[in-house]
């Protein structure tokens, strides 16, 4: 179980507002996160990953405290083992597909398995600039999975995939997520995009 209770002030073009989230994510569950543009979805995900620190909040993962602003506990992103698929993919232009996965893990068997799942075996020596949008998105997902993450965060990670590819990837991802017992949160504006993947939903809205 992942329990998060977050309070964060947010500055927007409309003025100041606040992000207040009180949520629980059962271990191994897949939750679709949605909300209007600028509602703070990405901010919330980055707080979970340790990339942003909220004014107040607590995060407990399987009974382990990652964040408690009151007790001044704040694990670094390096300690949290969160696989993060960024909206812009955040692929490293200097690295090949293979090097991306090797940067996340030394487990060669896992690398080969992930390349197979993502149908990327024949692109292992390609750099991101020579991959299509869909291939880049798959690589970002595979790289996050290479960490064997405790928590997988997918920030609009299926948007560049066509229906067939998405459905095939979802089937394989669900198997590996179950095996790794990874809890998953996926941001998606379209319910159809996560059909057959997410089993729970959580809405995020700012409070003024």
């Amino acid at each position: 179980m992942i329990e998060a209770s977050i309070y964060k002030k947010i500055k927007t073009y409309k003025g100041n507002s606040q992000l207040i989230v009180d949520a629980q994510f059962p271990a191994g569950s897949i939750t679709r996160l949605y909300g209007s543009s600028g509602s703070g979805k990405t901010t919330f995900l980055k707080i979970l990953a340790g990339l942003i620190t909220p004014e107040k909040g607590e995060i407990h993962v399987k009974g382990v405290c990652w964040l408690d602003t009151h007790k001044k506990i704040n694990w670094k992103p390096q300690q949290r083992r969160v696989g993060f698929v960024f909206q812009d993919y955040a692929l490293f232009p200097n690295m090949t597909v293979q090097a991306h996965l090797a940067y996340a893990t030394t487990d060669q068997q896992l690398i080969e398995r992930l390349l197979l799942i993502g149908k990327m075996e024949s692109f292992r020596q390609h750099k991101p600039a020579h991959l299509s949008g869909g291939q880049q998105q798959r690589l970002a997902i595979l790289r996050a999975m290479a960490l064997r993450p405790e928590l997988l965060i997918l920030d609009e990670a299926f948007s560049a995939l066509d229906d067939d590819l998405r459905e095939a990837l979802i089937i394989e991802l669900k198997i590996i997520l179950k095996e790794f017992r990874t809890t998953t949160i996926i941001v998606s504006h379209h319910l159809q995009e996560t059909a057959g993947f997410a089993e729970r939903t959580l809405q995020i809205e700012q409070e003024h």
Binding site: A49, Q78, Q79, R80, G83, A90, Y103, A104, A144
Partner: peptide, 21 residues
């Protein structure tokens, strides 16, 4: 993009490793 360094941090890499790699 800030996300490059952030992605590296989530992969367990230190600021120094991220800077050089």
């Amino acid at each position: 993009p800030v996300s490059l360094a952030e992605a590296s941090y989530t992969m367990g890499k230190s600021k120094l490793e991220t800077f050089y790699s």
